[in-house]
Simulated assay, not measured.
Amino acid sequence: MEPDIFDRMAAQAAGVQPPQSLSKEKLHAPAESQIAAQNPSKTPPNVRQALQFLLAHGWLESAAKPKLFSLAAAQTTLIDALLEPLDLRVVVDDVRGLAFLAVVPDYSGDDTDESEQDDWTHPLMKRQRLTLEQSLLLAILRREFLQREQESGTGAAVRVTVDSLLPQLETYLGSTGSDMQERKRLGQLLENLRTHGMVTEVDSQDCITIRPMIVHLLNPENLQTLLLRLREVAEQGSTRGSEANAEGAP
Rank of each mutant, 00 (worst) to 15 (best):
V215H: 07
Q224H: 05
Q147N: 14
M9A: 15
L88P: 08
D7K: 06
G174I: 00
S33G: 01
R231Y: 14
L54K: 14
P3L: 11
M180W: 01
L60N: 12
D4I: 06
L78Q: 05
D110C: 01
F6T: 14
T209M: 11
T154G: 11
A37N: 10
R48I: 01
E144A: 04
E2I: 15
K42G: 00
Q150R: 09
K67M: 00
V103D: 12
Q181A: 05
L54W: 13
G241W: 05
Q205D: 09
Q188V: 15
K126N: 15
L146W: 01
L136C: 12
L68A: 15
D113L: 06
R142N: 06
Y107D: 15
L137E: 02
N219I: 04
R211M: 11
L55C: 09
D163G: 01
E61M: 08
L189C: 10
R231C: 15
E247K: 14
Q236Y: 07
W120C: 08
G177I: 03
S108Y: 08
D206K: 13
P250A: 11
L173A: 11
H122A: 13
L189S: 10
H57C: 05
G58I: 04
Y172D: 06
D94F: 14
P220A: 07
A102N: 14
T131S: 15
V162Y: 09
R142L: 04
S21G: 06
H196A: 13
L193H: 13
L223Y: 01
L138W: 09
A56Y: 01
P45W: 09
E151I: 06
L166R: 09
A37K: 09
A63D: 10
G153C: 06
L78S: 02
L86K: 01
T154A: 14
K42D: 02
R211A: 06
E151Q: 08
L98F: 08
P19Y: 10
R148K: 03
G97Q: 13
P220Y: 08
I79G: 03
D106A: 14
P220R: 06
T200D: 13
A81Q: 15
L22E: 11
L78T: 06
A37D: 11
L189M: 14
A37Q: 11
R8M: 03
A99L: 07
M180I: 06
E144S: 04
M198Q: 08
A102R: 14
L166H: 03
H28V: 14
P212F: 04
R143D: 12
M125R: 09
D179T: 00
